[in-house]
Structures are given as structure tokens and as C-alpha cells.
């Protein structure tokens, strides 16, 4: 019924979604809002996770506060990302102007190498890249996004409108599955250890030790409940997009979010799955 397809960057996902080559995608929330605002027939139906983004500097960088990054170069995954918006939010808190830092767009996979090579001074990125910099011994988390944005979210599940109209049952299966996976992941450390192992080997093609670090250091570094899209969270994202100039005109929550699948989640229990089982129930 569902076929996961790995991409290397959000711009490629965006193009594939517009052209209809893919019918659903996990993408950064501001990009989804911007696409809907431009008339692309998509809707946000669920969140992928909460938290999990951080601003990271080199370990030898003397910066102790974001203010110390004035006139420095910071990498972000996209102009349309929550990782960019968190920088604007923190700059506002510290009374800084957008021109006080230099932002460069960079594919997520490249940021840790760029930081280690002194090509950038810091990056604002989702996991597992902050963990990778920490594990590699050359990076230090300056702050986690949640410290300045308590209900922070980043990736959301976006579905094309034609799939919602023609096959709502498939969308519901997807949302139910993510909801149950979230409950399973948030049940405790053993499940996170199992997830790091099989996701690292079979989906992300990354060292399971890296994902284990990201999922357990500490356990709430990334959380998977609640994943229902709330209006107040998206209003904040939209307002920051307007303020930071990546959205031309305001757009209402119900124009880009379809809450029927989150509200209609049929099975609200975690998967029953332990390591070694052939299938989850």
C-alpha cells in the first residue's frame, strides 16, 4: 500500500510532490505552508515529530549565547524551514536584526562536514546532525530549539489533495500508523534502541549508534507525541514566515491543514512489537 522513498533534500521532495511523482511526503512545515499558499494541491495531515532541532557551534567556539554569533555564518536546510524561523525568533528575543547573521542554505547531509572544516561557524538543523557533530567531538549544542520555542515542530506529513479525495482510507492508515509508532517510540528506551537499529540499517543508511544518540541523549531530545496538528502551533509558524519574508500573504489554518485524519485516528494504542518479531501488531 505504501512505498517509502528516500530523498537527499527538501527541494527535490518539493518538485516531486508538485509533479505528482510522489503522493505524500515528510517535509518542513513552512515549505508545506508556502506550497499551499502558491496553490499546490496539498494538505498537512499530521506531524512527524516534535523538537529535535538544535543550533550547533564548533566545540572550540567561545560562544555562550546566540548573541555571540553576530556576524557569523550559520547553515540552514532551507529558506522554508523551521530551523530558519527559530533563528529569527531568537534574534528577536535578543534584540538582533536579520542582517546580524549570515544564513546559508545547505543540504542537511553536508552541514557537519562544513562545520568541522570551518566553512561555517554554526548550523541550525534537525537530528541526527547535531548528534553527529557531538559524537564526532567537533560540535557543541548551543541551544535546543525547544528552549526558545516550547511546542517546536519541524517535519509534517503532507498529502496531495487527489489522494485525500480518491483514497482517504489510505491516508487514514498512514496517520494511524504514524500515531501508533509515536506511542511505541515514546514508551521508553528499549523501543528507541530497537528503532535506532532498524531505521539506521534499513531506512536511513546511517550508523545505528548515531540514531541511538539522537533518540536517547536525553530521551526527550525528539518526541513523537502529540502529533496532532494544532492551530496555535501553525499560526506561530505562519506569523514567523510573514515576518521573515518567506510568505507574501496570510493563509488560514484550515486552508493548508486537513485535521480529519488526526481526529479520526482509529487505533490509539502503540504497536505491539519487540526485537526479533517478524511483524508488528
Amino acid at each position: 500500500m505504501l512505498l517509502p522513498r528516500k530523498f537527499q533534500g527538501f527541494p527535490e521532495i518539493k518538485e516531486a510532490l508538485i509533479s505528482g511523482r510522489i503522493q505524500a511526503a515528510f517535509m518542513v512545515a513552512p515549505m508545506a505552508i508556502a506550497l499551499r499558499s502558491q496553490g499546490v494541491p496539498i494538505r498537512i495531515v499530521y506531524l512527524g515529530h516534535r523538537y529535535g532541532s538544535a543550533v550547533v557551534v564548533r566545540k572550540d567556539n567561545p560562544a555562550r549565547s546566540f548573541r555571540d554569533l553576530k556576524n557569523k555564518t550559520i547553515a540552514i536546510p532551507s529558506r522554508f524551514s523551521d530551523e530558519r524561523l527559530i533563528l529569527f525568533k531568537v534574534m528577536k528575543e535578543y534584540g538582533m536584526k536579520p542582517a546580524d547573521i549570515r544564513m546559508v542554505e545547505m543540504a542537511p547531509a553536508d552541514v557537519t562536514g562544513a562545520l568541522a572544516a570551518h566553512a561555517i561557524d554554526a548550523f541550525s538543523m534537525g537530528e541526527p546532525h547535531p548528534s553527529q557533530a557531538e559524537m564526532g567531538g567537533f560540535g557543541r549544542v548551543l541551544f535546543q530549539a525547544r528552549e526558545h520555542w516550547p511546542d517546536y515542530m519541524s517535519c509534517v506529513l503532507v498529502v496531495r489533495q487527489d489522494l485525500i479525495t480518491e483514497h482517504p482510507a489510505i491516508v487514514q492508515v498512514m496517520v494511524d500508523g504514524i500515531a501508533r509508532s509515536g506511542l511505541w517510540l515514546d514508551a521508553g528506551r528499549p523501543h528507541r534502541e530497537q528503532a535506532a537499529d532498524f531505521v539506521g540499517r534499513y531506512y536511513y543508511n546511517q550508523d545505528p549508534k548515531l540514531l541511538l544518540w539522537a533518540l536517547t541523549n536525553p530521551l526527550d531530545r525528539v518526541t513523537y507525541t502529540p502529533l496532532t496538528p494544532f492551530k496555535k502551533d501553525f499560526d506561530l509558524v505562519r506569523d514567523l514566515m510573514l515576518e521573515s519574508g518567506v510568505l507574501d500573504q496570510s493563509i488560514e489554518f484550515n486552508q493548508y491543514v486537513d485535521p480529519q485524519f488526526a481526529e479520526g485516528a482509529k487505533i490509539k494504542t502503540a504497536w505491539k512489537y519487540e526485537a526479533g518479531d517478524a511483524t508488528a501488531q
Binding site: 517509502p4 503522493q23 511526503a25 515528510f26 532541532s53 542537511p108 541526527p128 489522494l163 498512514m174
Partner: peptide, 24 residues
Amino acid sequence: WSVILNDYRAPENRKVNVAYIPVT
């Protein structure tokens, strides 16, 4: 190959493509 073969299936038998990148 699962992606390539899926693209050649009849529309009614085709799986839904769900894109992701390895980052939160």
C-alpha cells in the same frame, strides 16, 4: 528497484510513494 517497478504497475495496483529524508 521497488520504486522503479512500482512506477510500471497499473495505477490501481501502484503503491503510494511517501518521500522522506534522513533528518528530523
